[in-house]
Amino acid sequence: MKLYIKMPNKLIPFYQKELEMVKDNLKQDNLQNAWLHLERAHIIGQKYPYEHSFVHWKMLQFGIKIKSTKEVVGQIPRLLVGGVKSFVGHIPVGNTGGANVPPLKTMEIPEDIQEILKLNA
């Protein structure tokens, strides 16, 4: 069993760029694009406990901002368990992390993110 502790340095800029895009889109009140970038950050960071948990924290805050009970309630268990699952290498690959998808569902990774992950593996 492989333990994932730290995100590789080469991957960090891609993860951070997605989070910056979240901030930029929130400033412009473009909620749909902000959410898309949260999902992308989740896919990139889901193998790594801190980054995985941080995205769920941001998703919880987003749910509060848009007053979505479903998102808030859906993020709480993900926030509590996501990092642990990352640590032990047991994640549903490609899952976008929102309450709109089952937490254990494996999903297809967008092609550009597949390339990022391949280059930085």
Rank of each mutant, 00 (worst) to 15 (best):
W35I: 04
G89T: 04
M59I: 09
E18G: 01
S86V: 08
E18N: 15
A99K: 05
K47D: 11
G83K: 10
L80A: 13
A34T: 06
G94V: 06
R78Q: 03
H42D: 07
G63P: 06
H90W: 07
Q75H: 12
I66K: 12
H90V: 04
Q32T: 13
E51N: 13
F62T: 06
M21L: 14
P92L: 13
A99I: 10
I64E: 06
E18F: 04
G45R: 09
H37L: 01
R40H: 13
R78V: 14
K17W: 00
R40N: 13
Q46K: 10
S68W: 06
E20L: 11
L38F: 11
Q28N: 14
V22L: 07
V93W: 12
G45A: 10
L79M: 12
K23W: 00
L36T: 14
V93F: 07
I44N: 09
L38Y: 14
E18C: 13
I64S: 04
G94F: 13
R78C: 06
Q61V: 11
G45W: 06
H90M: 05
H56P: 07
Q16A: 05
M59T: 05
F54G: 00
P13S: 05
V73S: 01
W35G: 00
N33P: 00
N25H: 14
F54R: 11
L31K: 13
G98A: 10
K70A: 12
K47H: 15
L36M: 08
N95Q: 13
E51K: 11
N95H: 15
Q32M: 09
L19T: 01
L26H: 08
G94Y: 14
H37N: 06
G89P: 06
S53H: 03
F14S: 10
P92R: 11
Y48E: 04
V84G: 05
K17I: 03
E18H: 11
I91T: 15
I44M: 07
S86C: 07
V22K: 02
Q75W: 03
P13N: 11
Q46N: 12
Y48G: 05
F62P: 00
P13D: 12
P49F: 12
V72L: 01
N33K: 11
N25D: 09
G97Y: 15
N95K: 05
G97Q: 08
D29P: 01
L26Q: 14
Y48C: 04
K17D: 14
V73G: 00
G74T: 04
E18M: 08
G98Y: 07
D24F: 14
N95G: 09
F14L: 01
Q75T: 15
K70Q: 11
L79D: 03
N33V: 01
P92F: 15
F87N: 01
K17G: 00
L60F: 15
G89F: 02
V22P: 00
K85G: 02
K27R: 11
V72M: 12
F62K: 01
K65Q: 15
K67L: 08
I91W: 00
L80E: 00
I64D: 02
S68D: 12
I91E: 08
K67N: 13
N33Y: 01
G82L: 04
T69G: 02
G82E: 02
L36S: 10
